[in-house]
Amino acid sequence: MSSELLMESLQDSSSRPRTSSRQATLRIHDPRDRAGWQAWSEAWVRCARADAFSHPSYLVDRAQPGEKPLAADFDDGHGSRVLFGFLLRPIVSDALGRAVAEECYDITTPLLYGGPQRFIAAGTHEETLLTSFWEHFRQWAQDNRVVSEFHRENPVAGPSPGYPGQRTEHAGHVVKGLEGRSEAEIFGDTSKSFRRTVRRAEAAGTDILIDETGARIDDFLDLYYATMDRNSAAASFYFPREHFDMLNTSFAGRITYLYALEAGRPTSAELLLQCSDIGYSLLGATAEAGLLSGANSLLSFRAFLYARSRGIRHYVLTGGVTNSDEDSLLRYKLSMAKSGLRRYFTASQVTDENRYEQLNRGHDTECGFFPGYRCPRCEQDRAGIRTTEVES
Results as ranks from 00 to 15, higher is better:
Arg118Ala: 08
Ala121Lys: 12
Ala122Trp: 12
Gly123Lys: 07
Thr124Leu: 08
Glu126Ser: 13
Leu129Ala: 11
Leu130Ala: 05
Leu130Tyr: 07
Thr131Val: 14
Glu135Trp: 10
His136Trp: 14
Arg138Glu: 10
Arg138Met: 09
Trp140His: 09
Trp140Ala: 05
Trp140Gln: 07
Gln142Tyr: 06
Asp143Cys: 07
Asn144His: 04
Arg145Ile: 00
Arg145Leu: 00
Val146Thr: 01
Glu149Ser: 04
Phe150Val: 07
Pro155Cys: 01
Val156Asp: 00
Gly158His: 00
Gly158Tyr: 00
Ser160Ala: 09
Ser160Val: 03
Gly162Arg: 10
Tyr163Ile: 05
Tyr163Asn: 06
Arg167Cys: 13
Thr168Cys: 13
His170Trp: 11
Val174Tyr: 14
Gly177Met: 00
Glu179Gly: 02
Glu179Ala: 07
Ala184Leu: 15
Ala184Glu: 14
Ile186Tyr: 05
Ile186Pro: 04
Ile186Asn: 04
Ile186Val: 13
Phe187Pro: 12
Gly188Gln: 12
Ser191Ile: 06
Ser191Thr: 13
Lys192His: 15
Arg195Thr: 03
Thr197Val: 06
Thr197Asp: 08
Arg199Cys: 13
Arg200His: 11
Ala201Asn: 13
Ala203Thr: 14
Ala203Pro: 02
Ala204Arg: 10
Gly205Gln: 06
Gly205Leu: 05
Gly205Ser: 05
Asp207Ala: 14
Asp207Lys: 13
Asp211Thr: 02
Asp211Gly: 01
Glu212Val: 11
Glu212His: 06
Thr213Phe: 06
Thr213Pro: 04
Gly214Gln: 03
Ala215Lys: 10
Ala215Ile: 08
Asp218Gln: 13
Asp219Gln: 15
Tyr225Cys: 08
Thr227Ser: 15
Met228Asp: 12
Arg230Pro: 05
Asn231Cys: 08
Asn231Lys: 07
Ser232Trp: 05
Ala234Arg: 14
Ala235Ser: 13
Phe239Leu: 08
Arg241Val: 01
Glu242Asp: 08
His243Gly: 08
Phe244Lys: 02
Asp245Lys: 10
Leu247Arg: 04
Asn248Trp: 04
